[in-house]
């Protein structure tokens, strides 16, 4: 790619490759990856919902509300996959050290991020949301590679395509 990463201009995911691999190798069983995804989707859902209540611009608030609803649908997809993989209904168990809803994609604590967002401009919040969605896209692609179970792979890759759409939606709002 001409110009390398400097030419990319946004939509980059952060975090150490080793850290991701270490988690995936420790938690490479599909049910553990599902649990981690579920916990992070819940964090994002709460974030989008709370932010939508704070935003004054109606169109932006509506987009954030629908993003929160999309994360809830992702949770439902993960619930179904979890039931199929484990034979157990209900929410996936909490992954070790990650309380459901306590963290956002990328690892930022939810409450600290909500505190940070107070008084920030829509542009600043959108940039954060784009970073979150980029990390979610990165994670689902890597999870799709990490699992050997075909159905789990399909679901993770389908979720990565959804995250790609979210990214496009957020960036188009930022570009206006």
């Amino acid at each position: 790619m001409e110009g390398g990463i400097d030419a990319w201009n946004g939509l980059a995911a952060g975090g150490a490759y080793e850290a991701g691999l270490a988690y995936f190798s420790r938690a490479s069983r599909p049910e553990e990856l599902i649990s981690l995804s579920f916990a992070l989707e819940e964090g994002n859902r709460v974030f989008y919902e709370r932010i939508s209540m704070e935003l004054k611009e109606e169109e932006a608030a509506s987009i954030f509300r629908s993003m929160g609803q999309a994360e809830e649908r992702h949770k439902e997809t993960l619930r179904e996959l979890h039931a199929r993989v484990t034979g157990k209904g209900g929410d996936p168990a909490q992954p070790e050290g990650v309380e459901a809803g306590a963290f956002l994609e990328g690892g930022a604590p939810l409450q600290e991020t909500l505190d940070w967002a107070k008084g920030k401009t829509l542009e600043e919040i959108l940039e954060l949301a784009i970073a979150m969605e980029s990390n979610a896209l990165d994670r689902y692609i890597k999870m799709g590679r990490a699992v050997t179970d075909e159905r789990s792979r399909e679901v993770f890759l389908a979720l990565s395509r959804e995250e790609q759409k979210h990214l496009e939606r957020m960036t188009s709002l930022l570009d206006r």
Binding site: G4, I5, W8, L11, A12, A13, G14, G15, A16, Y17, E18, S134, N135, L137, D138, I141, K142, S160
Partner: peptide
């Protein structure tokens, strides 16, 4: 494929890129 060094990858990479 990201052919840079691990610390550069950590600072930001294209979603889904392998190091």
């Amino acid at each position: 494929i990201d052919v840079r060094q691990p610390e550069e990858y950590e600072g930001g990479h294209l979603p889904g890129a392998r190091l």
